[in-house]
């Protein structure tokens, strides 16, 4: 378990991280969200021991990153932002170095490096210098370095940044695959990623944790969560909107857009947990209008993200 306790970082007058606390258990993939400059990277750098906190600390699997730094670092795999790797080294030499410094030697080292190369699809470029590789490969080399020693805790700072959609997909698969035995914290800008990968998400803004919830839980915070979006065909009568608004459980109705003889309405229920869609559909069909489409909105993470990070 990674325990972040009252972590604070002050750069001169600027409070970059303000009293953050959270935990990440094994088996969990924790998405770390926030606008640029919110303190994501700073927090990750303190978790990995790159620089010390101003106050508060991080306990990584029982070892304090400040007082038992080496023991704590041994349990961590870290992929920094922009995936820095020595440009003049070849891929396998670089991984050899990482394996050696992590305590592997001889046959164990060769085997470990070989496995990691295969796993990250790097076997074909193993003898190439890093500066001859594309951005996607560089990212994978750095990713390989972070999982080389099979760490219990993985800290990934924007692991899919700059990758093409296929590569992003691969990295996400790898993260998901590894999550059973590890606690993974990864930061991202891409909210879809949170949905497809994370079991929990933390949103930070201005150095503070403003939300700590499952992706579904976050979505439930959306003003649109549980609302019914309905498009009706045929000359929409003026009375329809009022009729729907009077239905049981409907709080309000608004027109999203009118396009010729089509009209799209958004119906907000009084309680998002109680479905109103069937009643709305029944009412519309009774009125003799055709339904072009209908769906119940789950709420969009983008909206929630914007509300939470700008609203506060």
């Amino acid at each position: 378990m990674i325990e972040v306790k009252d972590l604070t970082k002050q750069f001169g007058n600027h409070l970059a991280v303000d009293n953050i606390s959270f935990t990440a258990e094994k088996g969990e993939i924790l998405g770390f969200l926030g606008p640029n400059g919110a303190g994501k990277s700073t927090t990750m750098r303190m978790i990995t021991g790159f620089f010390p906190s101003t106050s508060g600390t991080v306990i990584v699997g029982g070892s304090d990153i400040l007082t038992q730094s080496i023991a704590a670092r041994k349990k961590i795999g870290y992929l920094p932002e922009n995936a820095p790797v020595y440009p003049d080294m070849t891929v396998s030499r670089y991984l050899d170095f990482c394996a050696e410094i992590r305590g592997f030697a001889g046959a164990a080292k060769t085997q470990r490096v070989g496995e990691t190369l295969e796993r990250c699809f790097l076997a074909t470029v193993r003898h190439q210098a890093v500066n001859t590789l594309s951005k996607g490969y560089k990212q994978r080399v750095c990713f390989a370095q972070s999982i080389l020693h099979d760490p219990e805790y993985l800290i990934l700072d924007e692991p899919t940044d700059g990758l093409d959609p296929n590569q992003k997909h691969e990295v996400r698969l790898m993260i998901r695959e590894m999550s059973a035995t590890k606690a993974i914290i990864f930061s991202t800008h891409i909210l879809d990623e949170v949905d497809t990968v994370c079991s929990r998400a933390i949103i930070i803004a201005d150095g503070k944790v403003v939300a700590d919830d499952t992706p579904d839980g976050l979505r439930r915070r959306s003003a649109f969560h549980g609302s019914v979006v309905l498009t009706v065909k045929g000359a929409a009568s003026d009375g329809m909107q009022e009729r729907i608004a009077e239905l049981d459980g409907v709080a309000s109705v608004s027109v999203v857009e009118t396009d010729g003889d089509r009209m799209t309405l958004r119906i907000f229920p009084g309680d998002p947990a109680l479905p109103v869609a069937d009643r709305v559909i029944a009412s519309v069909s009774q009125g003799g209008l055709g339904i072009a489409s209908v769906f119940v909105e789950q709420g969009r993470l983008d909206d929630v993200f914007r509300d939470i990070t700008i609203g506060k």
Partner: peptide
Amino acid sequence: RLGTIELLLTLPVT
């Protein structure tokens, strides 16, 4: 400049 210092100093070395 390369940012590799971040990896170097988070390895289990003093």
